[in-house]
Write a protein that binds this DNA or RNA. Structure first.
Length: 400
DNA sequence: TCTGGGGTCCTAGGACCC
DNA sequence: TCTGGGGTCCTAGGACCC
């Protein structure tokens, strides 16, 4: 049994918690763009990612406050501590939501509903925030349930009633169906999850692509085998800076370089703080017409040093000088991928073919061996046995 | 209404290797 | 001179989520 716990209007709720004058009033966090809107603001149609001007047009009495990210991180830590005190099986999805696997807790903590009620009370009393919880047998359904129960709600999908719950819902309720996918489905007369379920997998696949089609087909029949995973590792670290549209066509090279250096500096700082190394640098540019491109380069070896990563980013940016001149530029982004632990050592792969053939001739390696992987990390050997067999027995790692 | 900043995953083509 | 198939890695773009 899985709980999906999701804090309501997180940033705005923290602001209302910390400043009583904001309570009961329509609040938007952010400046040029709304990062989060309180429920009072949402009632006027104010939404996150909306421009500040539009938000004020919809809601003249809107109170706009600048974000205080430190306060949100602090509140998030406190809530996640309560999550982990509820069950060790916590999978964070973002700063304000997580899956909790409470399946094995029955004997200790009572049934899932009781656990969910207690969790909501604790977050309310200890952190001062409202949290919505969805309870179901799968991650997907738990997330759908919490979405429907917002704000400040609790919704349990009864065992056996999953499809009856799911099928009347509009397709937009499905996790992974955004505006584009919804539009494609609507074009073909598909509006509810039940109608999706009525479609064959082939029809969905031809509409949405292989993975999305299969995925959606499975979800519409409430098949979701994904388990709660503790301790996800970040796969990329990035930063971006919008430059404002006004001077899109007359940014100087020096200005762009300054922005790039600032971003690389910030991002590599985070990389080092996380004790990780990166191998792929991606530069993202957005032009005055709002179209965007990405340019990537992979280094021969991973690093956490600023210099080689900055050099790669500069080269990528330099390659787009003429596009920047003719199309104007409104955003620069840098992302680091191919992450690994800083102290991990990966030997050259694949194992040199000539050396391999030589060993094979000497009879040192059984022909079924076709790869050698040796990995060291955290100051100790992680995997150090040769992944091969000779006469059915494992070979020891080569002395070298 | 001229639109932030942080991520994840999928697709598809080309290079390269065996 | 013309021809196969499988696999991995890299790059670019797109959709989606909070």
């Amino acid at each position: 049994v899985i709980l999906h716990a999701d804090l309501d209007s997180f940033y705005a709720s923290v602001e209302q918690r910390d400043d009583p004058a904001l309570r009961g009033r329509p609040v938007a966090v952010g400046g040029g763009v709304v990062l989060a809107a309180s429920y009072e603001a949402k009632a006027f149609g104010v939404r996150s990612a909306m421009g500040g001007r539009q938000a004020r047009a919809l809601c003249p009495r809107l109170v706009t406050v600048p974000p205080r990210f430190d306060a949100y991180v602090e509140a998030s830590r406190a809530v996640f501590a309560i999550f982990r005190d509820t069950t060790p099986l916590v999978e964070g999805l973002s700063i304000d939501e997580a899956f909790l696997d409470v399946g094995g807790l029955g004997a200790v903590s009572g049934p899932p509903v009781v656990i969910a009620v207690r969790l909501r009370e604790r977050v309310r009393s200890d952190v001062g925030l409202a949290i919505t919880v969805g309870v179901a047998g799968t991650k997907f359904l738990a997330k759908v349930a919490s979405g429907l129960a917002k704000p400040d709600g609790l919704l349990v999908v009864p065992v056996g009633g999953e499809l009856a719950f799911l099928h009347p819902l509009p397709v937009e309720r499905l996790w992974g169906v955004g505006a584009r996918t919804a539009a494609k489905l609507h074009d073909r007369g598909v509006f509810t999850v039940g109608e999706v379920a009525g479609l064959g997998p082939a029809a969905l696949t031809s509409m949405l692509g292989r993975a999305s089609g299969r995925h959606l087909h499975a979800l519409a029949h409430n098949r979701d085998p994904r388990v709660v995973v503790v301790g996800h590792r970040r796969r990329s670290i990035g930063g971006q800076r919008s430059l404002g549209g006004r001077r899109a066509f007359d940014r100087t090279d020096a200005e762009l370089d300054e922005a790039l250096v600032g971003l690389v500096d910030r991002v590599t700082g985070r990389l080092r703080k996380a004790d990780r190394v990166a191998r792929t640098v991606t530069v993202r540019l957005r032009f005055a017409d709002f179209t965007a491109i990405t340019r990537a380069h992979s280094l021969a070896r991973p690093t956490q040093d600023t210099a080689p990563l900055l050099a790669a980013a500069r080269t990528l940016l330099a390659g787009e000088r003429s596009a920047i001149r003719t199309r104007g530029i409104t955003l620069v982004g840098v992302s680091l991928g191919g992450l690994d632990d800083a102290d991990a050592v990966q030997l050259e792969l694949p194992f040199p073919a000539r050396e391999f053939a030589r060993l094979r001739e000497r009879g040192t390696l059984d022909p079924v061996v076709d790869e050698l992987r040796v990995r060291f990390g955290r100051g100790a050997v992680q995997r150090a046995t040769l992944l091969g067999r000779s006469g059915g027995t494992e070979l020891p790692m080569l002395p070298d």
